[in-house]
Design a protein around this nucleic acid. Sequence first.
RNA 1: GGGGGCGUAGUUAAGCUGGUUAUAACGCUGCCCUGUCACGGCAGAGGCCGUGGGUUCGAGCCCCAUCGCUCCCGCCA
Length: 601
Amino acid sequence: MSFLIKRTHRLNELSSKNISDKVRVMGWVAKVRNLGNMIFVDLRDRYSTLQVVFEEELLEKASKLRNEFVIGVEGVVRERPQGMINTKMLTGSIEVKADSLAVLNKCEVLPFQITDTDISEHLRLKYRYLDLRREKMRRNIIERARFTKIVREELEREDFLDIETPYLQKSTPEGARDFVVPSRIHNGKFFALPQSPQQYKQILMIAGFDRYYQLAKCFRDEDLRADRQPEFTQIDCEMSFIDQDELLDEFESIMKKIISRFKNKTVEELFPEPLTRMTYKDSVDYYGTDKPDIRFENKLVDISDIVRGKGFKVFDDILESGGIVNALCFKDSGSYFTRKVLDNLMTTSKDYGLAGLSWAKKKEDLSWSSPIAKYFDSDTLSSIEEKTGFNKEGDTLIIGAGPYKKTKWGLGGLRNFLAKELNLYDKNELKLLWVVEFPMFEQSEEDGSISAAHHPFTSPFREDMDYLFTDPLRVRSRAYDMVLNGVELASGSIRIHDPETQSKVFEAIGLTRKEIESKFGFLIEAFKYGAPPHGGIAFGLDRLLMLLLGEESIKEVIPFPKTNKAQDLMSGAPGTVSDKDLSDLGIKITRMEEESLDDSE
RNA sequence: GGGGGCGUAGUUAAGCUGGUUAUAACGCUGCCCUGUCACGGCAGAGGCCGUGGGUUCGAGCCCCAUCGCUCCCGCCA
């Protein structure tokens, strides 16, 4: 190619300022429009798209071009003729008249068109490199980079220090299943990939790096969801010499700045108010979840005391055995809640773990249309109206009754479901809040065992310490979540920093002294050498981006995600390893599914 | 581990109550076309209807099994 042209131009650099310039451009053929004696090619690179025009002696060569060929073109930038300006294109007022054309690489018949929007996820993941050429994915990947840059800048502005922690760690007994890595040098022993850099970041606090952050890859060997991948990225943070309120203030401010900058808005525009700090108890009471979506009101209203002993046996039996009766009021929703919808809702409610559901609708004359109204006198009905706001024509009341937890969480699920159906919120609104005062422990429904609700390094409320062994479920923890539009965005806690408390908590979750020593001995040992008070938080980067970009799945913001069966369709991972590697590792496979023997796919 | 949805040309879909040669759009191949930008026109190729079994005179359609993808529950400190 010509030595007069020093370099290849990025397509977004070219504009009407370059008219008459001789330029070289390279990229992919996005579209060919062959008019016979004139061929237009839309050329695409990472930055933009540009129309290239082929005429005369280049016609024959250009007529062979197909979608996704990689080409290099030298030519002259010129203005498009009058009326031929494409306002949808960044470079729509200009074009390049080609003087020469080099086909740098051809492209086979594509498994899908780059411009297609409705491709099966299977194909997209198998040909991820093609998928990533699509406009939306290209934008998402670029936006991800822009976002992490803002994250780093805002954290570093507050003196957070980027420090790496190891990927090969010790396996821990608590929490999710570990991805395990066998050790060759120590046959029979294993590393685990980190579920989070939790213990190392606490050690960093003890080492004196009072503000740490890391964009840390984390690994959990659990089943996948639309918002869950086996490896994902967290904005992992830890800081010393703070109490919970200071920490929440600090991260509230940082996160508001990060999101606002990313959205090109001011903090005042996006988050005019300080964030609500809702207790876990209130969150469950009013929203039936620990991650409430507060873009819409519709709180759960407890009407247990109103209906108690009024002669409706179903409710009375439930209340007598310690259950509750709760209602959800949807204003002006009569046209949605047809008889058919209400019947279907009975089935839907079972998906959310509710045993049953009742309902009431306000008729034109403000009387009740409801299968249960006949059991109650008018005083009771008006008490319910007063407490729930069920008072205008077209209002609908959804009533659930049963054990406390099941009923709250069930109605909470229904609340989200119905809000979506009824379009009760603005999709573009961002509603952040804190949920605080989580319980320290939770009890397994299977075997009744006690485990840490957050993780066992979380500091319990000092005033609840007395219940640690007598009534552990009553102990509250200094753990907190940041919630965005009903999605858990971040999770953190003030940590334990003295060896005695840490040992007690390990004991409370049933670890023996020996287990504590072998798994966490180094941490307890470290606490003995001047551990500062500290706490931290970790934000799910993928989830946050998913919400900010309006995507439904984190696969849309991760360059190379796994399928729901935790496979990489492009590379075929996971695969088998050679017998030699296995024997080096001292590993013998005793049970192997037949399909995994055949690694050819 | 459990439940729901989907599987038909390269792709996205249609295919009625089981009935002739399984449709369409985009893509692909060839020809025509000098201002297109969803270019247009003409002609054409392309299918083990995921796979295996069954019911039936007859199956893309019904039944059973199986595989794959996907969503949800369990699980995810």
